[in-house]
């Protein structure tokens, strides 16, 4: 079971809702993935509209809606957008994303820490998207973050777990869940993060832009489960010691 703040989840696969060819395909893909936490960009939500292009396809009784602040550029904008979304959507859960750089969408560590402190004080359950920076992860933990979401690689890049060594340090030190977000481009990448001990992963581009997003949803579900099971089962260490025919230390015998 994955526990974040006061909620528990059976699935360790978080998903996004962007880039899908239609709301119907998104709904089917998410159902196949078994995901119980779906993030939606506040900027995409048509507040006050009956038939929202995304929300009308999400079953909120089955999965937690996690609004995100994608598109804001500083803490001030993030806090304002979060408060508006909380009121309109009736949830205090928030994926905090502040990327002032629209090219690589790299998270701003300074503004993110600042916003996280304020939002946690305002009663939000905050999941900040960050670079794989172990010190920042600890600082956010102290600031009241409910989980940290370090990136594996730039958003949408499908490059895989390029930040592996730093994510490992974050996992080792964390007292809150670590969710690897961004850059995971295949089920193998997701399994790798889970084997490393990540509490969960978030996938969007690799699912939404797959040739068959529904089958791919199932593939990610299996990969995340397999990776977690492998982590819990205690992976044997890789063995690099070649058996030399004349050992270098045999003269000591």
């Amino acid at each position: 079971m994955l526990r974040i703040a006061d909620r528990t989840f059976n699935s360790r696969l978080l998903t996004g809702s962007g880039k899908y060819a239609s709301g119907k395909i998104m709904a089917e893909s998410l159902a196949a993935s078994g995901s119980e936490i779906v993030t939606v960009a506040i900027k995409r939500i048509q507040f006050g509209k009956q038939e929202d292009a995304i929300l009308s396809h999400l079953d909120r009784s089955r999965c937690l809606l996690l609004p995100n602040t994608s598109g804001v550029r500083d803490a001030k904008e993030a806090v304002f957008a979060a408060q508006m979304a909380r009121e309109a959507l009736g949830t205090h859960w928030l994926k905090l994303e502040i990327h002032p750089d629209p090219k690589w969408l790299m998270p701003d560590p300074i503004e993110t820490l600042y916003a996280c402190e304020q939002l946690a004080n305002l009663g939000f359950t905050v999941l900040p998207y960050i670079h794989a920076d172990p010190v920042l992860a600890k600082r956010l933990e102290s600031a009241g973050a409910a989980a940290v979401m370090p990136l594996g690689a730039p958003i949408g890049s499908n490059l895989g777990l390029r930040t592996r060594d730093f994510v490992q340090i974050i996992i080792e030190q964390a007292q809150i869940p670590v969710i690897v977000d961004a850059g995971l481009g295949s089920p193998a990448h997701a399994a790798e993060a889970m084997e490393l001990g990540a509490d969960a992963v978030l996938i969007n581009t690799a699912l939404a832009t797959a040739a068959n997003p529904v089958a791919m949803g199932h593939a990610f579900k299996l990969a995340v489960e397999a990776g977690r099971l492998a982590f819990e089962s205690g992976l044997p260490a890789a063995n690099f010691s070649a058996q030399s025919s004349s050992p270098l230390t045999s003269f000591l015998d």
């Binding site: 239609s22 506040i42 900027k43 995409r44 939500i45 292009a53 598109g71 804001v72 904008e77 304002f80």
Partner: peptide
């Protein structure tokens, strides 16, 4: 392709 009508929010 999905038409996207809204990809920004006035709150920003």
């Amino acid at each position: 392709y999905e038409p996207v009508w809204k990809d920004w929010d006035a709150s920003y």
